[in-house]
Amino acid sequence: MPFITSFNAADFLSTAISLLVAFGLGALIGLERQYRQRTAGLRTNVLVAIGACQFVDMAMHLAGPDGAVRVIAYVVSGIGFLGAGVIMKEGANVRGLNTAATLWCSAAVGACAGADLVAQAVLLTAFVLAGNTMLRPLVQRLERMPRHAEFGEASYEVVLMVKAELAAELQDRLAKLLDAAKYPASNIEAEERGESLAELTATLVATSVRPEDLNAAVAQLRQLPGVTSAGWSTRIAD
């Protein structure tokens, strides 16, 4: 039988050790994810780690280091499809990016174990755990800090309340005035507000503005016939 002739006890022991290392380290990463009640928890991270480990280990035994390098390249790209499955978009928010990145790192841990780089696998696991635990208080502190538009990208909106019968005309004038102020709008939406009023919302292309410039533009808009109120708002991007 091919199995009997090809079986090598030393190779088998090496594979077993690699899988045990990948299992243990993947479990450490997965425990933290399970404790945080993330989509990809203990079992998922373990399976990713031992799967990557076995693919790389098999390539090492069949084709040597060159074969392992080729398989690692496929593991790196292939794990992206699995990571995409845990990323969810809820309105303007995107969830699961950290979980997907953790899965990617679990695959790297498994690949290191499969390539017999056990020390590197242990070191990488320590860094993954540090990133998911030690950095959490820092992230929470940053999220609680006041945000200022000048320090990051933001989306800006100019909002007008206008007489409904003049909405179309004022929409064109709003676009021209914003262009003249060097803050063109990517789109302008009109929505009815009762029988006599309409709301015009212009989303600006710019992700950074000078407040005094927008204040001046809004002051001009307030003077237009048919405009009952005008203002602008900002939302810092996540």
Rank of each mutant, 00 (worst) to 15 (best):
A9F: 11
T99G: 09
I72E: 05
V159F: 03
T39W: 01
V128K: 05
D179C: 05
P184R: 00
R141I: 08
E150Y: 15
S186Q: 13
D57S: 15
P137S: 04
I50Q: 05
V122I: 10
A108N: 03
A59M: 12
Y156D: 11
G30D: 08
Q171I: 00
V139P: 00
R95E: 06
V205H: 10
L177I: 04
L13I: 08
E192Q: 14
A9G: 10
L214M: 07
V56L: 11
L135D: 11
P65R: 13
G67S: 03
L142V: 12
A40Q: 12
L142M: 13
V71H: 04
Y183T: 05
A181R: 02
V209D: 06
S106T: 04
E191C: 03
E90R: 15
T207C: 05
S14R: 11
A219D: 12
M134E: 03
N8H: 14
I17M: 07
A180W: 00
R43Q: 12
N93W: 05
R43H: 14
T5P: 07
M161F: 03
T207A: 09
A119P: 02
I236C: 08
L129Y: 07
M145I: 02
Q220A: 08
S186D: 10
A149P: 06
A27H: 05
T203D: 00
L177Y: 00
A16S: 13
E150I: 14
Q120S: 11
L31Q: 15
A59D: 09
C53L: 10
I17D: 02
M58Q: 15
A206F: 03
L166G: 01
D11A: 14
D57C: 13
A167H: 07
L20V: 06
L13N: 01
E195D: 15
L97W: 03
V209P: 06
D11S: 14
L103H: 06
I188A: 03
T125F: 07
R147V: 08
V75S: 02
D11E: 14
D57K: 05
V159M: 11
T228S: 15
L47Y: 01
L160F: 10
S186I: 01
C105T: 06
A27E: 06
L103P: 00
T234F: 09
T39C: 06
D11M: 11
R33Y: 14
T201D: 01
L62A: 14
A101N: 03
A27I: 02
N45L: 12
N132C: 04
P184E: 02
A230W: 01
N45Y: 13
G64H: 09
A113H: 07
R193F: 12
R144D: 09
A63M: 12
C53I: 08
V71Y: 11
V75Q: 04
L42Y: 12
G51D: 06
E32I: 11
Y183K: 00
A167P: 00
W232V: 03
L224C: 06
A9N: 07
